[in-house]
């Protein structure tokens, strides 16, 4: 009994205590990774060999224009927001301006079979939505925006 109590004893050094829990979690993660490889590995390997996985990949359909367009637009949107905002600091103007452009571009990218009515809708919504959000949140509720 005493030896067990001795075994369970731990001394935590406060200076190093930030590493204790992360290392435990990392060991558990490693263990689980191994277990997954042992359990699911052979199955995956077999699928790879008989081509099931490969045909699965081949069947993967991507709308390249919309996917990469969406990612690129979002990236540009996030990058531009703060610099534009410095035009008139702490007023949320960066959010407002970039959102109008982004909203318009993203809607245009996503829409199919564009017609006049849809053009109108997109134009209207891409101006009104950010404007509404900006008025309500940046002004009425005074949330800080870029």
């Amino acid at each position: 009994m005493d030896t067990l109590a001795e075994l369970l004893k731990v001394q935590i050094d406060f200076e190093q205590s930030h590493l204790l829990f992360p290392s435990i979690v990392e060991w558990v993660l490693g263990g689980l990774m191994l277990a997954i490889i042992v359990v699911h590995g052979p199955e995956l390997l077999a699928q790879w060999r008989n081509g099931a996985l490969r045909s699965c990949l081949a069947k993967w359909q991507v709308d390249k224009k919309r996917l990469f367009g969406c990612l690129a637009l979002t990236l540009a949107y996030f990058i531009a927001m703060e610099p534009v905002g410095t035009l008139y600091p702490n007023s949320g103007i960066g959010f407002l301006l970039t959102s109008i452009v982004y909203g318009f571009a993203l809607s245009r990218l996503f829409v199919h079979d564009i017609n006049r009515r849809k053009w109108m809708l997109i134009a209207l919504s891409s101006v009104l939505t950010p404007l509404f959000v900006w008025v309500v949140f940046a002004h009425l509720f005074r949330i800080t925006l870029p």
Partner: peptide, 21 residues
Amino acid sequence: YLLYPGIMMMCVVGAYAINSG
């Protein structure tokens, strides 16, 4: 095509605001 840009904007507002900017 109208809903998603709106959701994206709200997510931005929420994310930016959660730690006050």
